[in-house]
Nucleic acid binder design. Structure first.
Lengths: 302, 302
DNA sequence: CATGACCCATATATAAAATGTATGGAGACA
DNA sequence: TGTCTCCATACATTTTATATATGGGTCATG
């Protein structure tokens, strides 16, 4: 009772003639007769009446025929689905985004574009911190991530640089520097720096501290924010200043002003993270769209 | 891409372990590995990730798994349906009934009983005349018939006697004999006999004429009725008398009275007609129910 | 009524494919 | 580091499907 038997059954039913069916199937008549006979005996029911001028369906055959057609159709669809999956036209992609990444316009743009190009692909998005993203990636709870390098497990996560985003200083409204469009970090030495826990994004964290160091000062660390975007309300509350990716200026939170940073300024580096040694077409496809979007749809400075 | 491959795929997915899946499938591990590998390459997509402690589904595998399960379920159902058909528990039966047969209580009783016993079987009923029934039977438009023997094509239609139904005389209301419970045919010699065309039921037709002959008279043939039950309105209209199967007394047509016939009296013989050399369980089953019903559920004389 | 055409069934031979056996290799765990 | 687990590979074997050759039965045709 194989797929083959279903095909034989349906073809014979359609031609009403074993000899012609065999020809249509690209085989000889005797094996086809034999297979159908075997099928009938295994089912315990006659599907065809052997008549002098051919064969005709029995009542049982007539009843079972649509069922057999259905199974053949489903099999065909299964194979087509598999090919679609193989080519990255169908499937599901679990995307992990590092903190504040959704605020960078290129990212939602790329995602919208991808779902237009590959309508058969469903996407799920999740925002988390870089180390958690890596872990989710390695335990196959995610398929692709946009994270802030470096990553803890260099060996198992392949990191593909995506873009370097400038950063801005966030000052509470009414701060003496509010009128300055560009500020040197050295002038912020006295201000408590609101920053996220280093574990949530060691790369960006270290980049900020390194810029301070290059500017010749050491920041005084103020209150810890629960995440990158979480620094803004704390700044607004007057608890200090913070350094954030440029895209956060979109958050029109009252009580905060954003200012360019004079060199040396940190960058918020974003990269694509995938499992090493694995790059299905679906993922490859998504990466291409992402890179293209970041190239053409550049974030303009304020 | 066989049914087998679907089963392999699903079993491995369920155990997460090729070795254990092979055991479950009653085969060795290497061929199973090989078959899955072959399946994957024919689909052009990886279904499993090979890991040190077993295998796990890829995204594509996860997507395709329910589809594979569905196909396996449908195949199982197909086989079960076939077995049901083989045992006469499922299917469809096209039943042909000779004229006025539905009026014989045993017949609807048997049909109701059968549909209770075999709920998986759908029935279709059609009323026609005996020669037409035989033709429909032989051209596979009917599966079983209840007809009035003899049949034209003795060779290809197997006739199984079912019952002999007594006949009644139908008189128009107000006829001089209305008060007699039993009438001898010789007394009807003068009355025009309303009868159906001989082609529609030669057996019953000849039985009626033979009874007249045995009674020593020759009937004068009156108007022809379009069918057996169709004689009644004509009798009611006063155009003559007629001889009908006993069951027709159920037709409480005003204007007609029914009377027993003194010997010699014709009988309305009914028989089951099926194709010779063919007796699927479904048909056999129905015949059994029919015979049982006719035996126990005898039509009582008026 | 005989002959040829058509179609399905059977028998045997051949080719293909799946399975079994034996073995190797890679990673996990102690 | 050694052992265990589990999958992959190589080769032998068996099963299975298919091809070839042939026979029987029915229908149409001369």
């Amino acid at each position: 009772m194989d797929i083959r038997h279903f095909r034989y059954f349906v073809t014979i039913a359609e031609t009403g003639n074993i000899t012609k069916a065999a020809e249509k199937l690209g085989m000889e008549q005797p094996p086809l007769s034999q297979q159908i006979r075997r099928l009938e005996s295994s089912l315990g029911v006659s599907l065809f009446r052997r008549q002098p001028r051919g064969v005709s369906l029995t009542e049982a055959g007539l009843t079972l025929l649509p069922h057999a057609r259905l199974i053949l159709d489903l099999r065909r669809q299964f194979i087509e689905d598999a090919h679609g999956l193989a080519q990255g036209k169908k499937g599901h992609l679990r995307i992990g985004l590092a903190g504040a990444v959704p605020l960078l316009p290129s990212i939602p743009f790329a995602i919208r574009q991808f779902s237009t190009i590959a309508p058969g692909v469903t996407l799920s998005l999740e925002e988390s911190n870089t180390p958690a993203l890596c872990e989710a990636l390695l335990s196959y709870r995610m398929d692709i991530t946009i994270l802030r390098p470096p990553v803890p497990d260099q060996a198992n996560v392949k990191v593909i640089p995506l873009l370097d985003e400038p950063t801005l200083i966030a000052l509470p409204k009414g701060h003496p520097f509010t009128s300055l469009p560009e500020i040197h970090l050295s002038r912020l030495a006295a201000e408590p720096l609101i920053i996220f826990p280093r574990e949530l994004g060691p790369g960006f964290f270290d980049a900020i501290l390194a810029a301070y160091r290059d500017a010749g000062v050491t920041p005084s660390l103020g209150q810890q924010a629960p995440q990158i975007a979480g620094t803004i309300p704390l700044v607004a509350a007057g608890l200090g200043v913070s350094i954030v990716p440029q895209s956060l200026h979109q958050l029109h939170t009252g009580g905060v002003t954003f200012h360019r940073i004079a060199r040396p300024a940190p960058h918020a580096t974003l990269a694509i993270g995938i499992r090493t040694g694995e790059q299905p077409p679906l993922i490859h496809h998504f990466i291409t769209v992402l890179q293209q979007a970041c190239k053409t749809h550049l974030t303009l400075p304020d």
